[in-house]
């Protein structure tokens, strides 16, 4: 998603926002404006407001929360969710930031590499995840077959051990979404004027100096927004867990998104499912507040 950045730096003349005063809408224009926004307002009411309200209502039964807390799977899902968010999001974005530097280099090789590197994002998620799931099968998956072929030993039980299975889910998430965020940071880096680097080089700054003194400070705002957005999206990520570990082994890798669906549609208790999902609100609300504040500052625009 498109994140564009306005880099806050002295070398660039501040963009003067056009605040052309216009007269308020009159007559037919007003009707046209109304007609133009109606589709979106309708979509918003019918498919955002109503479901959100209905979901809140479904999840407002205290008994559901009591039942949820009594379920030993719930605390482990909360912990998994936190680990998933902290590790997957940060690992992914840190790698993306570094790799975007690689793709800044000129030359046919880096351009070709970028074309290939983008593939995981362009290939639909479900087929890729099914493939990763099979690839990691401990008895006949590609990885352990390769380990056996090379070293004649049984590889690790990727999906049959709780920690490894969660690790595998994180791997799949990073694999799928790393290219996207790399492209975003690449765009951010391209906005940094070359002269900054050139003058730094003249002053004798090394690559690391340039990264820490120019790139990172200038991309900091963008990085923060990306972290917040990516965290929110990862919180709602159902497919990675569903198709890589399926929540297994022994329900040990469920996150709130998958546990909610399980409680609602496998155990037949939609109120419990909604309560599961809503229990993420204490985490979600601060994220949204931070994100909104960050976006209002206008340094980074969506």
């Amino acid at each position: 998603m498109a994140i564009a950045t306005t880099v806050d730096n002295p070398a660039v003349a501040p963009v003067v926002s056009r605040s052309v005063r216009r007269s308020p809408l009159a007559g037919t224009d007003r009707l046209w404006a109304l007609a133009f926004v109606t589709p979106y307002v309708a979509v918003f009411c019918a498919f955002v407001l109503y479901p959100v309200g209905y979901g809140m209502w479904l999840g407002s039964d205290v008994a559901s929360y009591r039942q949820l807390l009594a379920d030993p799977v719930f605390p482990s899902a909360v912990v998994n969710t936190l680990i998933y968010l902290l590790v997957a999001v940060n690992l992914k974005l840190a790698l993306a930031l570094l790799l975007s530097g690689l793709f800044m280099r000129r030359g046919w090789w880096c351009r070709l590499l970028l074309l290939i590197f983008i593939l995981p994002w362009a290939v639909p998620g479900i087929p890729s995840f099914i493939s990763i799931h099979w690839m990691l099968n401990s008895q006949w998956g590609l990885i352990n077959n390769a380990i056996w072929a090379l070293f004649q030993v049984d590889g690790p039980p990727w999906l049959d051990n709780a920690d490894l299975a969660l690790g595998s889910v994180i791997y799949a998430h990073v694999w799928k979404w790393l290219p996207f965020w790399t492209v975003i940071f690449l765009a951010g880096r391209m906005a940094i004027p070359r002269e900054l680097y050139e003058s730094a080089e003249v002053d004798g700054a090394g690559a690391l100096d340039r990264f820490f003194h120019i790139t990172f400070p200038l991309l900091g705002g963008l990085y923060l927004v990306c972290t917040l957005l990516s965290t929110i999206w990862a919180l709602g990520d159902f497919n990675s867990v569903r198709f890589i570990s399926g929540g297994g082994p022994a329900l040990s890798t469920h996150v709130l998104a998958t546990l909610g669906i399980r409680n609602a549609f496998e155990l037949g208790n939609p109120a419990l499912g909604m309560a599961t999902v809503l229990s993420a609100l204490p985490l979600l609300i601060p994220l949204v507040v931070l994100l909104t504040r960050q976006l209002r500052r206008g340094e980074v625009q969506l």
Binding site: R22, P24, L25, D29, W32, A33, F36, V37, Y40, V41, F44, F47, V48, P51, V52, Y54, G55, L58, I232, W233, L235, G236, D237, F238, A257, G260, I261, A264, P270, G273, M274, V277, A280, L284, L287, V288, L291, T292, L295, L302
Partner: peptide
């Protein structure tokens, strides 16, 4: 067209943006 209260639409869009997609699956079905 610079409608008044355009910011409300922007905020509505922002709100939608910040909902994890799978979280609404249960109410959506109903």
């Amino acid at each position: 067209m610079r409608i008044r209260r355009g910011w409300m639409l922007t905020n509505a869009a922002l709100l939608t943006y910040a909902i994890p997609m799978s979280f609404l699956a249960i109410p959506f079905y109903s």
